[in-house]
């Protein structure tokens, strides 16, 4: 794979991302409680403990390109059980922001879901579960995923043809634009 970061960038990024998430990297002594408690660890390519280790070593590219930061369910178990209160959940969140900035996302479906969800809010101000599922299935190519549940949802009016949106759509759109500008600074 082509190098995304220069050597200098690689070195400078770890402290920056750690600071953004309020984590002091040296406080992790690799006990592994985060990994032991992580419900998604079985599917990860780099274990939660190793994410911090790679960052301690300044190996940012490995971390930004891994699947683990996208498979994290943000459940907060790692942080809760960490004997040194290293906020790994927040660290992973900051890593996602950085990866997205470099247009890297090792789990394509998670990116599609996130963008579709946010697109929904931008248009309607509220999440529309029907549209979210339809657009996600189309873009991800998993056309029939969960579709077996749709008849039940229709029968029980869990999904309806009408849209529940906010009235002040323009206000929500301006808010999102201003917030994302701030985030992308």
């Amino acid at each position: 794979m082509e190098k995304v970061l220069s050597k200098d960038e690689n070195k400078a990024l770890a402290p920056k991302i750690a600071e953004q998430s309020g984590v002091k990297l040296h406080e992790c002594y690799q006990c592994g409680k985060c990994t032991a408690g992580c419900p998604m660890a079985h599917a990860m390519d780099i274990m939660p403990r190793q994410i911090v280790r790679y960052m301690q070593l300044g190996m940012l590219e490995e971390v930004l390109e891994c699947k683990s930061i996208w498979l994290c369910a943000a459940c907060g178990t790692c942080y809760d059980r960490c004997p040194h209160r290293v906020d790994l959940t927040a660290l992973i969140e900051a890593l996602r922001h950085e990866a997205k900035h470099h247009k890297i996302c090792a789990v394509r479906e998670v990116d599609i879901f996130t963008e579709t969800f946010l697109g929904n809010i931008k248009v309607f101000g509220k999440s529309q579960e029907v549209i979210l599922a339809g657009v996600y299935n189309t873009l991800s190519g998993n056309l029939l995923q969960n579709m077996n549940n749709v008849p039940h949802m229709l029968r029980h009016e869990m999904v309806k043809p009408e849209i529940h949106g906010v009235k002040d759509k323009e206000g929500v759109r301006r808010l999102m634009k201003a917030a994302l500008e701030e985030d992308d600074k």
């Binding site: 922001h97 998670v110 009235k167 929500v172 999102m176 917030a179 985030d183």
Partner: peptide, 21 residues
């Protein structure tokens, strides 16, 4: 006239988006 809280997707994308929604 409440709006969506942004859920996981907003905090995946950015800090200010996650706080502002």
């Amino acid at each position: 006239d409440w709006n969506c809280c942004g859920a996981t997707c907003a905090h995946s994308r950015g800090k200010w988006l996650a706080l502002a929604l």
